[in-house]
Design a protein around this nucleic acid. Sequence first.
DNA 1: TCAGTTATTAAAATGGTTTTAATAAGTATA
DNA 2: TATACTTATTAAAACCATTTTAATAACTGA
Lengths: 402, 402
Amino acid sequence: MDSISTAGGAEVMKRQNRSSVLHVLRKESPVSNAEMARHTGLSVMSVSNIVKELQACDLVETTGSGESQGGRKPTLYQLHEQNWVISVAIHVDNIQTAKINPQGNIVQVEKKSICGQLRQNEWAALVCDLIDQLLENTEDQARPLGIGVSAPGPVDVDSGTMLHPPNIKAIEQWEVAALLRERYRLPVVLERDANAAALAEYWFGSSENKSSMLYVLADQGIGGGIIFQGKMYRGFLNGAGELGHHTIDMDGPKCSCGSYGCLEALASGIAMTKKAETMQNQREAPSSEKQQITLEKIFQAAMAEVPLAMQLLEESANYLGVGIANAANILNPEEIIIGGAIVHGYPAAMETISYLVNDRILYNGNNSMIIKRSQFKEEAQLVGAAAVILDHLFSNPQLLMK
Amino acid sequence: MDSISTAGGAEVMKRQNRSSVLHVLRKESPVSNAEMARHTGLSVMSVSNIVKELQACDLVETTGSGESQGGRKPTLYQLHEQNWVISVAIHVDNIQTAKINPQGNIVQVEKKSICGQLRQNEWAALVCDLIDQLLENTEDQARPLGIGVSAPGPVDVDSGTMLHPPNIKAIEQWEVAALLRERYRLPVVLERDANAAALAEYWFGSSENKSSMLYVLADQGIGGGIIFQGKMYRGFLNGAGELGHHTIDMDGPKCSCGSYGCLEALASGIAMTKKAETMQNQREAPSSEKQQITLEKIFQAAMAEVPLAMQLLEESANYLGVGIANAANILNPEEIIIGGAIVHGYPAAMETISYLVNDRILYNGNNSMIIKRSQFKEEAQLVGAAAVILDHLFSNPQLLMK
DNA sequence: TCAGTTATTAAAATGGTTTTAATAAGTATA
DNA sequence: TATACTTATTAAAACCATTTTAATAACTGA
């Protein structure tokens, strides 16, 4: 059976319609039956029945009644606020877990920093510990609905496996989804971090919910996530959106990936600190006391208007502008959201980037493409992991109901 | 109503199922009811009924019976070969029209070269003339099912309007779809040329029908089309796939689009001829008789192993390799097909490009990404326009079935 | 207060799909 | 050659989520 096809009988229809209603509830809530009917194209009666079903499963609640549109006041509904999912964000140097409700609000967070090299089973133990902490003080009525995991790429989404993240040597072929599914008996979905962050922004962040969005994560490295037709586009091997590793200067410096002149080798936090170190070495005697340079310090220096720092950041913004314009010409998204430390630590970067992208983009009738800074900062992946599992559950409502 | 949503009742289900069957008939024919049921996920009974319906509309025909799989021989079906659509390919210097059947075979072609500047209404008259010629000697039983039009971008697909093609000055805001729909009383769809060529390759060409494909058209200019989950991805303003205008060398030459170092400014046919002219001028006295350089002549020179020509083409292939690798890292397609004069006039380009792409691509487990040369040459857009209208009809079967 | 609008609900009708069961037409093996 | 087993097709009945129709509820504005 073709996975693309949506053919089928009443069962398929039922699933699609419940999925549609759930997605509308998430996007438009609080919302009335009548309005949901307009959004989904279903009859009011069907929506009414479906909502009643969802209420019976404690997935939906009433939030009072809305303004009259000239007749009887509508009853408004939303996804039940007390429901929550478990969200896990695996980073190179820390792990976060959280309870997050369907509105994308963080109810509780647990975090653990990681010093030194951990083995794979130590990572596993840590993740489970943090989840257990979330579950401990649970006198909630509501059960967790599922677990979403965000992790550095590459990942195999289908099997829920972390493959071999370049900056976490000890992890290889870790079937994290299977582990958690087994242990907690819940639906589990794994997603690459930039994709998760993209979905966080699309669902709960600065996105205006256009049908296509490019999310760029500009931090120590540079990655991205793509939304096509309201859904995440992962590509063949979950490698879509790796715009950090596209060449914008064929004569540029060598990149960690082996190519030359990649955006990441020119504009990333790592590239900037490396460049700053080189400049420092040139100016001071090699034997003198060296100060450890970090991205954070570059931001601070720029805030203090140190010319070299400002120049470094401005250069980075320039490269980002060119690179993002490239991606925009290939993808032609309706909306671009830029997140990560660079645009938050040096807000002026957005101006440079916006200018360059608008200047270099081929098709942009009436300058209608939107380009914005992300709403989420460090918590992007965490909220994103929640969005990922919620998306999975809403697209497969049979996992939630009955 | 959200355009993304597939919610609805029996009517929606019916349309989706007929659409699925039609698409399977196109992809897998000749094919039995039972096999179609497996492909679509529908019951055999439903497929049987739907096929019977399609037969009644003369859309499907039997092609005898297939091999036994251990039981009764299956009756095989395919889309009726005698049906056809009208295909129109608008190029900068010529117009082609054709009758094309659902198997993608060209039944009849008409072509008209264009010398000098035509006005918009002259273009219109010419297109209609060529279509009329197709319809003239029609003692066919079957009527044409619809009209597909391929044209240089930018185009507005929704309204079927050619906006302002940079190389056809006289055309601006030409509502070509409305014109043809009015005149011939048939469904009409307009598509950008590179997208049409991409669909031609995906449906009828070298594609192995993976779920995602990047098609690159490397000719005088450089463009592209993207297939995503088996469907064309157009982007916001139908501008997706414009990888000709992404920068691969920030210090590169100025491009016609205003940017610097675009792939098109470095690797395209126009870029090569320009470069060849410059070299010629440097070597000869400016007053001497100059030979007009064309892309075709460069290919011939390379065939004759003239070093300069070979170097020019090899350089172009190099740029293409880098540019396509960039797009591959952003899109991570399962399959890349490269068409246009450059890879057909200089086949060795494929080796260079393949090598570079495979070398520079970030995620490519087991080298499983496919990279191939296109099957279609000049006729790509023409066949593509047919694919585009067929796709439209198959996705909206109510247009076909009474 | 009455006419007009919007929202919700109940019961019946609808309509395409699936199920069940029967038939048709092959293959493989003894 | 007969028998058992497969696979494909077809007909009638059952199914089931949706829509339709009609009635009711609740609010606005003149």
